[in-house]
Each structure stands twice: as structure tokens, then as C-alpha cells.
Design a protein around this nucleic acid. Structure first.
Lengths: 221, 221, 221, 221
DNA sequence: AATGAATGAGCATTCATTCAT
DNA sequence: CATGAATGAATGCTCATTCAT
């Protein structure tokens, strides 16, 4: 996923700088509000009030409300996956598969919590058939594909002590279920904000480990 | 969860019958449309056009749009849990915990597929902060509580061969994770309608069994 | 051209009566304003202010702005041709073709002046490619067809002393040119409101008579 | 009518040349679009998109939208009358009045067809009460005056065999009716693009000839 | 029990225009 | 000479809701 341009401009002249800032502010407010209230319930008027810019300025920077949504999603996805990348860049060496998986999931939780807005919007769109707008729907697909790739890598790295091939087999078998667990845990957290995703992610780590070991055993037998 | 009244009337006079039918039609259309497009994007006008009834008729039957939403949720929840009850009423005797769990989940899948509209709306509301409207939010809570109760019962029944007490301990430990798995599987299904929830629910059954057996072992040790 | 319904209602209940009146008022204001300023320049807001009804009431009676335009045109055309019919119902007996034609055109001038709004709007639409909206464009066509039919009848009646067949031949030959003269005269009048269409219509009567007599002579020869 | 300046500049420096080209492009697009959709419906945004120039560039060249309209009209009128001049510069010698008139009108038709945009816009403005904007209204007046002058000259030249004085008397009597016929024929052509203005202009030539001969006879008698 | 009319706030979007660079 | 950003009023239209009948 490549970095979405913050502005269409190319040089850094003053006028352009102002435009860039405005664009970023709109994107910011939109990300926040759309995640809070959903796409349909986030009006351009509110966005205008929130940013202090007139409505027409929003249309100067984004062609339409749905265009703004696309930009919000692209921007959010870029941020989210960059954070993921960073969070998982330096896993500790050694330890059991369960311990390694636990480390990955704890790092992931952090990223989830700081990008909850993006994830919530992603899930709302996924279910609201507002996704039918092609551009949005393909964005959603890509986010899920990228998410799965991350999950795959995490599992493979957790099981790397079993040998690269076995680890990859485990990862390929379990990555999708890992995503399922993440989505479910996120929803559980949304339902009861009382505590973080920690408990559920621990359970997920337990489950993935248990199943992973069965697969490892199967590979050997 | 008690059956929501289809009509405010008490006797079955002819006039009332017509009213009852209208009310049911509105509720039906609302369930479908709100699940498709979300609450905010489902307008009374569209509802009126869809049912052929004038807008004022909708207000005759339901006090307000959010009142209609409550009724839709109440009705959907009632239907959903009644279907759950029926689907799981007569589990087969004998078999391993995994086999018994598999049976339960397969039955559950069926109910999920036929009540997908309700579940989707439930999840959209859960995340859209439309939930902040007290009435809706308490409805959501109750649905999740009831769902967990069902999950608890399913797990306990699956493990009943281990003795009532152990089975209950397993169920108490795992029911929440079961819900997480269900929610996640439902979302995965929404994302790629290509296949049913079957694969993911099988994985979930595997995971729950593996973790259940660990708990059983822990109880014994 | 059949009478356009003033209201969709069927009975004369009080609520319906109010609606009927509102609908007529909107239609009235729209006819006037659109003819004055053109379709594009007549905003729903102004229409609302003019009638005292809220904008949404206008949309209650007419589906859209272009729907309102259609209704305005249909209503205007009906009124216009009914007035034409009446004005030409009882032509005087006897007299030369020129005298009879003069009578017809003088009667027509009257109708033109009292329905100038409709005619102006008709011509604006005819040229503004707002007519591309199918419904409007077919309305325009019909108006022109009906107009030609009237012109044909007038000429035939003016020349009836030459025998029905000859009169009809003259009418068939000249009706289209009569329309051309009318349109041109109307535009000339619009350009310089100083005097009525009288002078030009007299000239037109002269021209039609001269050409008619040539045709009559040709028929005989 | 004098040639309208294409650019406000005075020398032909390179920078100026670019400005001149931009100005001409805007004028071109505006002529076309305003004639197609009317003045009100032609927005600066669309003009900007069509020319590829930023909106502010349009305001750089023309003070305001109505200033642009004036320029469009001035430019169109200049072009139109120059074409008229050229088309009628060398009438054939000899022939009857009808033949000579026919030649003039056929030449005129050509000019009408290649300047239909200008004529359409002229007529739309004439009727749309956008004409109330003084500048536009005086432009329209002048166009009509110039048109009449051309018509007068054509008729006089057609009847020149009757002697200069008589020819002028005929022209003075009929020029206005000639304009009426032209306008009407143009509208008829707009209404049914199926064929050119030829048929109607022939009829007009017939009519003018017939009436002209009557006047000639009157002069003599 | 049901209906059509009305209401006014709000929606997404476009308008002509100005300004600093 | 050209540009992108900004501005605020206006556009057509839809919203949830109320009311009289």
C-alpha cells in the first residue's frame, strides 16, 4: 500500500502550503467524525464547522463526499499498516511459539487501539453496503488482504523454530482464522469499552498456538 | 427475551387485522432496508415507498424513527433467539466434544444465514455510535448477553461427558471467546460472500475443543 | 391536447381542496417566473417565497424541478389552445380572403398577448437545449403540431369562398409559413415592446393573402 | 460595428501572445456553451474545465461573467456581420427581383448556419430578461438594427431595376417584415433540425417579392 | 385506522467571485 | 500573466415529523 498524497501540489509555495494544511485538516476531521458516526451521518456541514473552512473549500480539495471517504480510507490504511510494520519490526529472539505469538499480538493491540477509528470505519463500511461504490469496496478488499499478509507473517515468525517450511504451513493454515479472531475481538471491545482487547487476544494466542502445534505434529507424523 | 407485540391492539377485529398487517409490513421492510443501508441511510420516505403506505401511517404505528428501530431490533432479536432455541433443541447423544460442538456450530450457521440482516444491523449499530441512544444501546447489550448464554449452553452440552461441573467450567471460560469467533466469522463472511461461514466455524470448533481439553486437563491435574 | 389534472386527488375533501389550491398557486407562480427569467434562472427558493409555501411543499406536489416545468408547459399549452379555440370559434361570414384572414389574425393577436408568458417560455425552451429532457422536448413538438393545425384551419376558413378543396390546398401550402410569421412577429414584439404584434400580423396577412391568391390562380390555370 | 479587441494588450510580445490565445479560447468556449445551454446555465467552472484554464484566468481576461457575455456577443456580432458583408458583396447582375432576392437569401442562409450559435444566444437573451442588464440589452438592439440595415440593403438591391427611389421605398416598407421572416425561419429550423432554412426562406422570398410588386404598382399608380 | 398536505431544518453540491503569490 | 486556495450565498432536493380530516 503506497503513501496517499496529502496534496496534489508539487512545489512548496506558500499558497500550496496553505492548501496542503487545509487538506490535511479536512482529512483529519473526516477520519475522526466518520469513524465516530458513520459515513452517512457525517455531513459536510459538520466537517466545515469542525475545520473552520467553508463547505466549498472541502469540495475544492475533494471532488465529492464519497471521494473524501476514499481519501480517508486510503490515508487511514496507509497509517495503520505503517504502524503495524514498525510495531512488529523487531521481535525478540527465542521463546516458545506461544510467547512469540503473545508478543506479536500485544504489539498489534497497541496499533489497534491507536487506529481504532480507522478500523471501526472499515468495519462499518464493510457491512453498510455503502461499500458498493466500487472504489471503497476495492479499498476494503485490499485492507483485508494486507491484514492477512501481516497475520501470516506474524504466525510464521512465531513458529519459525519449527523450520521455515513448517512455520509457513502453519501460517498459511491459520492466518485467516487469526483475522477472524482480530475482527471478533475488536467488536467485543467496541461492545464493552470497559477493558482493552488484551484478554481476547490472549485467548486468540492460546487458540492459534494449540492449533499450530497440532499442525506441526501432523507435519511430523 | 419476550415476544414483542406485533400490534398495540388487543382484539382481532377486522380493522385491527389490517393495522396488524400494515405494522408487520413496515417492520419487515425496515428490517431489510436498515440492514442493507444502515439506520441513518434508511429514510421514512423510502420505507413509505417500499410498503406502499403513506408516511403518516408509519408514524401511526411507531412513534418515531428511533422507535421503529427499537421495534425492528426487538423483533429481530426475538426471531433470532427463537430460531436458535429451536435449532439447538435436540442435540444428538454421544460423540466426542469436537463432534458435539461441530453439530452445534453447524446448526448455528444455519440460523446466522437466515438472520443475517438482523446480525448485520446489530453490528452496524454496535459500532456506529447510533448506539448512544440508550434504548438501542441496552437492546444491544441484551442481545450480546443472550448470545453469550446460548454459547455457554452449547459448550457445556458439548463437554457434558466430562461431568456437569467440569463442562460448566469449560463453558464459563470459553463462551466469550466463542462469541468473538462468531462475530469474526460473520464479518469474514460479509467481506467475501463467496462461501458460507462453514470453514471458519469449523476452525472455531477446533480451537474451542483444543482449549476446552486443556481446561479439562487442568481441572483434573 | 387534454386538460392537465390540477391535482392527483379524486374527491373534494377539505385536505384535498387545500392541496389543489396550493398546486395551482405553485403552477401559476412557476409559469410566470419561468417565462420571465427562463427555466434555469427560476429557483425553487424564489418559487417558495413567491407562493408562501415551503420548498418541500413544492416537491410534495411536483417530483422535481423539471417535473414542474413539464406541468407548467402542459398547463400553459392547454390554456393557450383552449383560448385559441374560443377566439376563433365564430368567424364573421362573407368578406374577402384578406378580410377574413385579418379577422383571424387579430383574434390570434389577442390570445398571444394574454398568453405571452407561455409562448416566451416555449421559445426559450425550444432553443435552450433544456429541451433535451425528452418530456419537455415532446411537449414542445406537440405544441408546434397543434399550432400548425390551428393555422391550417384559419387559412382554410379564410379561403373557403374558393371551394373547400382549393382552400385546403392553400392552407396545406401556407400553414408552416404562417407559423414562421407568428414566431417572428412574437420575437419582434419581444425585442421592442413599444407596440403590439398588430403591424407585423397585418403584414403577415398581406403576405399570406398574396401567396394564397397565387396558389388559387395556379389551381385554376 | 467595430472589431472587438481580442486582447486588452497593445503589443505582440510573447507573453501577450499567450494571453491572447487564452482569451480567444475562453471566448470560443463561452460562445459555444452559452449558445448551447443559455447564459444562466453556463458556469464559470464548466468554462474553466472546458478550456483547461483556471477560473481565475477567466476573471483575469474578463471582469465578470456578464462582462464575458458582452464580449461573447460583441465578438459574435462582429463575426456575423462581417460574414454577411462578405456573402453579399457581389450579387449577380440582372435577373428578376425574385431571382435577385433568392440569391441574397440563399447567401444569408449560409451565414445563418455557420453562425447559428450566435443567433441562438441572441434570441435566448432577447427573451430571457437577462437582457435587462443594460449592456446586453443595448447590444441586442444594435444587432437588430444592423440586421435590419442589411435586410434593407438586400431588398433595395433586389428591386434596383425599378429605380433607386422605388427600390428604397420597397426596402423601407419591407425590411422589418424580412427580419420577422428570418427570425421565424431560424426558430422553425431550431425546432426541427431535419432540414435547413431553405424552404422557409424561399417562401419568404416569394412573400417579399409579391408584396414588393404591389408596392411598386402602388408607386406607379 | 388511514391519508394527503404541510413544515422547516438540513443535505450534498455548485455558484460567481476574490485574493495572495 | 497565471495559479490554486478561499469564500459565502445559493442551488435542487430529502429529512423526520405534525396536522387536519
Amino acid at each position: 500500500m503506497e503513501p496517499p498524497p496529502l496534496s496534489a501540489g508539487i512545489n512548496g509555495s506558500a499558497g500550496n502550503r496553505r492548501g496542503r494544511r487545509s487538506r490535511a485538516e479536512i482529512l483529519d476531521a473526516a477520519s475522526r467524525l466518520m469513524a465516530e458516526r458513520g459515513y452517512a451521518a457525517t455531513s459536510i456541514s459538520v466537517l466545515s464547522a469542525e475545520t473552520g473552512l467553508p463547505k466549498s473549500a472541502i469540495y475544492h480539495h475533494f471532488d465529492s463526499k464519497s471521494g473524501l471517504l476514499s481519501a480517508v480510507m486510503a490515508h487511514g490504511a496507509y497509517d495503520f499498516f505503517r504502524a503495524m510494520e514498525q510495531a512488529q519490526a523487531t521481535p525478540p529472539e527465542g521463546g516458545t511459539a506461544r510467547e512469540r505469538l503473545g508478543w506479536f499480538l500485544r504489539r498489534t493491540e497497541e496499533v489497534f487501539l491507536t487506529h481504532a477509528d480507522f478500523l471501526r470505519l472499515h468495519l462499518i463500511l464493510l457491512m453498510s453496503a455503502e461499500a458498493s461504490e466500487a472504489e471503497v469496496s476495492s479499498m476494503i478488499e485490499q485492507v483485508r488482504r494486507d491484514g492477512r499478509r501481516h497475520m501470516n507473517r506474524m504466525i510464521a515468525q512465531a513458529f519459525e523454530a519449527e523450520g521455515a517450511e513448517t512455520a509457513q504451513a502453519v501460517a498459511d493454515e491459520l492466518d485467516y482464522f487469526g483475522i477472524v479472531g482480530f475482527d471478533g475481538a475488536f467488536i467485543a471491545w467496541q461492545a464493552e469499552r470497559s477493558h482493552g482487547l488484551g484478554v481476547e487476544l490472549d485467548r486468540l494466542a492460546d487458540a492459534l498456538t494449540a492449533m499450530g502445534e497440532q499442525i506441526v505434529a501432523g507435519q511430523r507424523g
